[in-house]
């Protein structure tokens, strides 16, 4: 088991999924307070056709190019959701549902075409559906680390502006901040995080990387800053542990294991969370009940 861990490629892969987990956890907090959790799911599914189209054009598996393709269709998906929502009576969640399924269906269709083409079958494009971190090579890892670092930097450097934008965008606008600018920046950050994650985690489960750590951290803190820190830590832990577990078997997909670890952390938060955990809730209720009955006895 340890020999797997010591295998140099595994360490590289774990490093990249850890950083991916941190970035996704941090960005997930933004998505959580923007109340756009389903958006990340729609955009990650919308990335699939882009990956396949990029592969069909260049004919080889170069992660950077595939990521650019993924980002392109993902952004098209985001614009489409926005356009449908503002120009028709269709609500945002319906628009997301449409974009998610149509883009994903289109992607799977293209995938079957690509798999029939010469070399397509061995390309490992199928890995983009469930994720296969072990298939990554050194250059893929570097691409991921650089982009994830960039995303984290963008959030850290104007942290207070993110807080203002998420809490009260109208007020931010009154202060002269550009909400359109922040919306664009947010979409860019979200799309970058999604597209660098899809090779390791897969388009289907990528949204879980963004959603679950943010929700888990909510149970532990009442401060936005600590929530972001914790969410990053939870995401990083899930990335590292999930990758390690999947590396112990051969050909195990990475995405599902990362998500399972993440869900485990969520379960712990749900039960033991300091702020809203179920057990704390019951204990507080019991102690209040006790105080009340004691007081009642004293009176009588």
């Amino acid at each position: 088991m340890w020999s797997i861990l010591l295998h140099s490629n595994t360490i590289w892969v774990m490093l990249s999924t850890t950083i991916l987990g941190i970035a996704a956890g941090v960005v997930g907090c933004l998505a959580y307070w923007k109340r756009q959790n389903l958006m990340s799911d729609a955009l990650s599914h919308a990335a699939l056709p882009g990956v396949v189209i990029a592969f069909l054009i260049i004919g080889e598996k170069n992660l950077l190019i595939l990521v650019i393709g993924a980002a392109a269709t993902s952004l098209v998906g985001a614009l489409l959701i926005q356009w449908v929502t503002t120009s028709s009576r269709i609500t945002e969640d319906t628009a997301m549902g449409i974009v998610l399924s149509v883009f994903y269906g289109f992607g799977v269709m293209l995938l079957s075409i690509a798999n029939r083409s010469a070399g397509g079958n061995q390309s490992g494009l199928n890995n983009f559906i469930y994720g296969q971190a072990a298939a990554m090579v050194r250059s893929d890892v570097i691409t991921m680390i650089v982009l994830a670092g960039f995303v984290i930097f963008l959030i850290a450097v104007i942290f207070k502006e993110w807080k203002l934008y998420l809490f009260d965008a109208g007020f931010a606008q009154g202060l002269g901040r550009s909400i359109k600018g922040m919306n664009t920046l947010y979409t860019i950050i979200l799309v970058i995080t999604i597209v660098i994650g899809i090779q390791a985690v897969g388009v289907i489960l990528m949204a879980a990387m963004l959603i679950i750590p943010a929700v888990s951290s909510r149970y532990w803190t009442h401060s936005f800053k600590s929530m972001i820190w914790l969410s990053g830590i939870f995401g990083g832990m899930a990335g590292a542990l999930g990758t390690w577990i999947s590396a112990t078997g051969s050909g195990l997909p990475t995405g599902p294991f990362i998500v399972i670890v993440s869900a485990g952390l969520f379960l712990i938060a749900l039960l033991f969370g300091k702020e809203k955990g179920l057990i704390i809730h019951v204990l507080q209720f019991k102690s209040q009940q006790k105080q009340f009955t004691v007081r009642k006895k004293e009176v009588s």
Binding site: W33, V157, E161, K163, L164, F167, G176, R177, S223, F224
Partner: peptide, 25 residues
């Protein structure tokens, strides 16, 4: 118009009124 469940405290919200003067970065 805002979500009061947002994790922050009263002082922090009031400080947001100064963000215009404090500057973006």
């Amino acid at each position: 118009s805002v979500d009061w469940d947002f994790p922050t405290n009263a002082l922090d919200v009031v400080t947001m009124g100064l963000y215009g003067k404090i500057g973006f970065f």
